[in-house]
Write a protein that binds this DNA or RNA. Structure first.
Lengths: 332, 332
DNA sequence: CTGAAAGCGCTTACAG
DNA sequence: CTGAAAGCGCTTACAG
């Protein structure tokens, strides 16, 4: 079932039939309805390959994600994929764990000339970025900022959020703060750390101790707790660069050292993944404003796909604040 | 940069250049190397839209998933997407929560004529199935069986696995078993229930009490625990249709009724999601053989994409057994 | 083994 | 407002 079939069936030209399916096209309303109705009856579906070949637009959004299997990103992915379909675009997912994987995967993606690529990973190589730029495919960074001045991005105000955490801890009587850093140069980690450290200083307390981890995962949290045993007596509260990091740290500190939370140590996570609200975790956490971030991403996506200019290129959504639960004590 | 550009550059025909990129094609090795080398230098990438238009093959695998945001499926998705890229295919993700969503989403997917569609949801309507069949797109059901005799599928031996759970519970001294059912007609739920009930009967114990839930999620587990309070004294062990269901039930029973697990109630989950091994959950569970299931899925996918006949159409991977952790007691 | 040509199903100037 | 025709970048019989 092609346009040609409809044209033959209706005994009008192929060109006219084609025009019936496009917006802002010069065609009599009568003819348009006729074509549309008949197409519906015949179960016509446009061939996207033919269309893309002719228009050079694909309505495909590429998504590059290092950890599909991470609660926060799977939440985002779920929301995003649904919304993308609502604006009649499709989502092509690219996995990978290492920079080299990405470069290879990106090759595959680029072959489909996506209208835009959403980046959920810091691992894109310079070469890959250059390639996308060369092909004219806009890159939208989600929850991270790129050094690339041409890149688009949607983030949140991590520094302000982290400052809120410092305030909460200090206001509730904590004096020896610490930050559990993901230990890599992810911008989210750095911004959270900076905001937290700055505000603590501003409030007149000694700079938070920085406890290193080797990533954002639960296992990284476990390992960090093991390594940080010596330092535990010196701190009374810990802000973690992610929820999983906080949960891993808390589980291991409880299990191995019998640490009582929040009596001996208050713990604050970051993101507010679904797990954080479970009574078995009951984690106080700084919320990531996912809804608004997804909204902004979609707005960008649809503007870009319509060839509109997007300004500013980087949007920062304000923090939605802290959800207080059972892992933080109120000492005064 | 197109085939034509290369042809012009090398001063040979377009057809010959095209042949250089295909396998099993008649062309001198010398010419092939010449073309390949030059293409590499020029940074040529085939246009998949043009190719698909000509060949009617797309190398796209559509994935229909009702809950991307569920630990077990995000684990599978992560593995799958990586493996799919290794065989040089791409993954297009279709979300949706309700049957009507799927039908709409499927329309979009079908426009890309995927080489196959992977179904991770029971919600496909008859009309949608019919449409895929009509378009000649094979449907591969993952972890579920379809009534459709033409459908492909990869599952596991849920009944045998569930029987193992009954054996474990009975062997360790439990006598009043129960099953927490997802309450819907998902084949996984039914098979697990059947295997569990059958084996319990075979072992000469009264049939397990069936406790109803309203799905497979953590929240469904919470709600089931609330509703099941009256029945708790009558049972000493509970096999749950999913890990999340088990975790939700356990959390809520502990929090609301102060139930001691496993002293008062042994709980067994199903799937072995990453969370189950966390010390805060420490859940005994029947493992889903994800690795092997993904292997089988990929084997099917690549056979189908090469036009080979796949027989049998439905593969069942054996259960990988139970991982015993802290939510089950050994009473003898 | 190589080349000329038709075709895949659309879009879109260009005439009328 | 409609139609005839070229073009998007590939593949693949058909000749040579």
């Amino acid at each position: 079932m092609t346009l040609k079939d409809i044209a033959l069936d209706l005994d009008i030209s192929l060109a006219t039939v084609a025009r019936a399916f496009q917006k802002d096209t010069i065609i009599s309303e009568e003819t348009r309805q006729l074509v549309l109705r008949r197409a519906e009856q015949l179960g016509y579906r446009a061939n996207v390959f033919a269309r893309s070949l002719a228009t050079r637009k694909t309505r495909i959004v590429g998504v590059i994600m290092s950890s599909v299997n991470s609660p926060i990103y799977s939440e985002v992915l779920a929301k995003l994929s649904e919304r993308i379909h609502r604006i009649d675009m499709s989502l092509m997912l690219i996995p990978g764990s290492y920079a080299q994987d990405f470069d290879a995967s990106l090759q595959t993606l680029m072959a489909y000339s996506p209208d835009a690529i959403l980046v959920f990973s810091g691992l894109l190589s310079e070469a890959a970025i250059e390639q996308a730029k060369h092909a004219g495919v806009p890159l939208i960074y989600f929850n991270r900022v790129s050094r690339d001045p041409d890149a688009y991005g949607v983030g949140c105000d991590n520094e302000a959020g982290a400052a809120l955490v410092a305030d909460l801890l200090i206001d509730s009587g904590h004096e020896r703060l610490a930050f559990l850093s993901s230990g890599n140069d992810a911008t989210t980690n750095i911004e959270r750390m900076t905001g937290f450290v700055e505000r603590t200083r501003m409030r007149g307390l000694p700079a938070p101790k920085i406890i290193p981890a080797t990533g954002f995962s639960y296992e990284d949290g476990l390992n960090a707790a093991l390594a940080a045993r010596e330092q535990l007596p010196a701190i009374d509260s810990l802000f973690c660069a992610s929820d999983l990091l906080a949960l891993g740290f808390a589980d291991e500190a409880r299990r191995r050292f019998g640490l009582r939370i929040p009596e001996e140590l208050s713990i604050v996570g970051c993101q507010n993944i679904a797990l954080a609200s479970w009574s078995s975790h009951d984690l106080t956490t700084l919320c990531l404003p996912i809804e608004r971030m997804v909204d902004e991403t979609l707005a960008m996506l649809s503007s870009l796909s319509q060839g509109q200019i997007v300004e500013p290129r980087v949007v920062r959504v304000p923090s939605t604040g802290i959800t207080e639960r059972g892992t933080t004590a109120r000492k005064k």
